[in-house]
Write a protein that binds this DNA or RNA. Structure first.
Lengths: 253, 253
DNA sequence: AGCGGTGTTGCATTTCTTGCAACATTCATT
DNA sequence: AATGAATGTTGCAAGAAATGCAACACCGCT
């Protein structure tokens, strides 16, 4: 834990909220202006921070480039993508791919619904961890004590009347998901949106990612969406096969 | 220039090349292992670095979330405004900035002409989507199927004899605009008004906004207006550069 | 010109980082 | 099983590097 670096890095999320000037940064860090200036300069030299024409600072292009590379290193995504597209082509709904990392579940890929009514979500955005179908799958695969530890620490926001209310309910849900090998979110995050999800497993059988199909009530009912479950599971299994090197990749020479 | 932060940040591009273990990081930084360890720990706490199961480090998903958040909070208008004003000062005509959103193209900023004869338009008002130069640029950047879907659904009002008559003509026009990287509206909306427009692009090259210069015939002919094209494009490029954080650093050392 | 706000620099102080060396841990080899 | 090598981790003393201060420079404003 290096104090200087810690302070410098604390600037990043702060600037992610929007541009800020030197004084604001210094205030929020609780340091002298000159200190903030020098930290910002260093960040600037590395391209992580950019100074716009009104002298205010914001996050810089380098960060985007790094993020890009970071994402490419998560190679599940690369392998999964064509499968997600194919699934979208056959059902038309929004398809998501998510991974668990450091107490968060993040969407790392998305294929947009071909229906006019779409669900809001963005790649890179943390998922509503207590209700999302993909989150349930990813957490359900963790060792029991870890699962418990996380469940205790989480907040359980009541997005809708069907949201997971507390740690106990969540752990029971995870147990169920773990056994059945798939998960749903029926209006737990947004009243009118349902999801079905299935896990992607690595060579060792551990869940490395989860994918889901989401659609609003106005397009298909929850029951209709559930009929897609076999297809979703088959897709997830295909990705697992390829990811774990079990299925040979075709057409590369 | 803070040495500690400088070293810590140097780790990021290094890890972008691929996962590395403590020793490798220390070597490439030219510091003692324990130093590298402490830097990595700090980066880890901020989620910028992730430790995979084989103990090696790689870039973390938080980078991604930060970049995403920054994108969402970026305000094109704020960045573009001073450029629009400068353009207006040098040519005197009305300058517009527009974005595409939900099947509509909206003006989000405007600098009034300094000539007595002005064109009518309002910020926040939907643009005549089938003829406006800015609309052409914004739609031309959408994926092919989406472009087609929208073109089919639109009405094609005959504002003037030069208005885009139907979906076919519109799609051909979009194709042309897409290739040449700029657009015009020569009397397509109001007989006596011409526009030249250029796109503003984000870091990923996608068109995030479009800007235009408009002037009535009575002030300048269409040909005269077209001579402004290079200036308009340069302005749009300057905005793009600043928006995407690409613009090189000025005079700080 | 004068004034408030903001950004920038030189310097003395002291905190925080650093490298070292010893220790812990994992894993392969005998 | 025991040994050894390779890698990761911690406590500590030395000193290098970050900090805050105060003074200065640079706007835009009235």
């Amino acid at each position: 834990m290096s104090q200087t670096v810690d302070r410098a890095l604390s600037i990043l999320p702060l600037l992610a909220e929007g541009p800020a000037d030197l004084g604001q940064v210094a205030d929020r860090l609780g340091v002298h202006k000159s200190t903030a200036l020098r930290l910002l300069r260093t960040l600037h030299e590395h391209g992580l921070v950019y100074r716009q024409s009104d002298q205010r600072y914001r996050l810089g292009a380098r960060l985007f480039a790094l993020a890009q590379e970071a994402m490419e290193n998560l190679d599940v995504r690369e392998i999964a993508h064509p499968h997600l597209v194919r699934l979208n082509e056959s059902c038309g709904h929004t398809v998501h791919l998510a991974v668990y990392e450091e107490n968060e579940v993040l969407y790392i890929d998305k294929v947009e619904s071909r229906y006019p009514v779409r669900m809001y979500s963005r790649i890179g955005k943390p998922v509503a961890i207590t209700v999302a179908a993909v989150a349930k799958l990813l957490l359900a695969d963790l060792p029991e004590h870890e699962r418990r530890a996380i469940a205790e620490k989480l907040d359980y926001p009541t997005y809708t009347s069907r949201s997971t209310p507390n740690a106990g309910a969540f752990l029971r849900e995870l147990e169920k998901v773990r056994e059945q090998g798939w998960a749903t979110d029926l209006g737990g995050h947004e009243e009118s949106i349902n999801c079905v999800a299935a896990p992607v497993r690595g060579a060792d059988g551990r869940v490395v990612a989860a994918m889901s199909v989401s659609a609003p009530n106005v397009v298909v009912t929850a029951d209709e969406l559930l009929t897609l479950l076999p297809l979703v599971r088959r897709t997830a299994d295909a990705i697992s096969g390829e990811y774990s090197g079990r299925t040979p990749v075709k057409g590369t020479e």
